[in-house]
Amino acid sequence: MKRLPVLLCTAASMALAAAPAGAAPNIYHTISSTHGSATVASTAGCEQTEVFVSSSVAMYASQPGPVNKQGLSAVFVRVTDICAAPAGVVTAAAGGGGTVLFQAEGQNMAPLVVDPRLGVASISTDMAGMDGEGNPVTISLSATWTASGPLEHDTVHTHSNYPDEGTVNATDNNLRRAATADVSVTVDGMTAAGTDPNAVLEQVKSRCIEVARPGVEGFFPCFGFPG
């Protein structure tokens, strides 16, 4: 039987429920992931500059096992001549009309710095990237998020039964805040900055327990792999 993982790394959590007689938890997983995103755009004459920012920090662990922490931040920059028809050696990415004059993107493992209730968050880092012609560039990113709305909370419980293999029990504990983001990016001698009043901060806290039936091995539906 083909089985897809029950949980993705940013989206789920699980709590123990009743297990089959004689069964014991195989692995108890926890995940905490906090993510900030923002988009800023400005236009000067025919030139439109867009910046897309994503930054996160995550913790994951299995029991027994160590706690692992990691960050991931990414930037995409595009400058477009919106008065011209699409043309040139650089192809427009992510849609939009006009001719792309310059674009660059990069990412690294720098973590988002954020308070537990998503009131404020920030990232400041230099990352290696590539421009639209495949040339290496260095992208300097500075971004801050300030909450502009109430803290939204929801919890989702899931119980999944695999008749011949075992059970999985999940709890997703999710937080979200509307935010205002101030973003500044410098790449290849060009600086782009702006404010996104419709940015967002999100947090997912996840727990997952896999309970295999007696004699069943290789039962890892939470993530598709042990630990």
Results as ranks from 00 to 15, higher is better:
M109K: 06
F223V: 07
K2E: 15
F52R: 10
S142Q: 10
G194E: 09
V57H: 11
T186A: 11
T43G: 08
P221R: 04
R117G: 02
S122Q: 13
T49N: 14
G106S: 06
P86F: 11
V183F: 06
Q48E: 09
T138M: 11
T30W: 06
S148N: 10
H159A: 14
V79A: 05
S32A: 14
V6P: 01
P150T: 05
M14I: 06
A143F: 08
G227C: 09
C83G: 02
A44D: 13
D126E: 15
D81E: 02
Q103L: 04
G22A: 03
T80P: 07
T91Q: 13
N169E: 10
A11M: 14
V156H: 04
G96E: 08
Y28G: 15
C208D: 15
L101I: 04
R3W: 02
A212N: 11
D115Y: 05
S13R: 01
N161Q: 13
A85F: 03
A192F: 09
A38L: 08
N169D: 15
D188M: 04
G189K: 12
C208A: 14
A61L: 03
S142C: 05
V67H: 08
R78E: 15
I31F: 06
R117S: 07
G218W: 00
F219V: 03
T186L: 06
V90P: 04
D154Q: 15
P111S: 12
G22S: 04
S62W: 09
G97R: 04
S37V: 15
A92D: 00
L112E: 04
S124E: 13
D172R: 12
W145G: 13
F52H: 00
H159I: 06
A85Q: 11
E165Q: 12
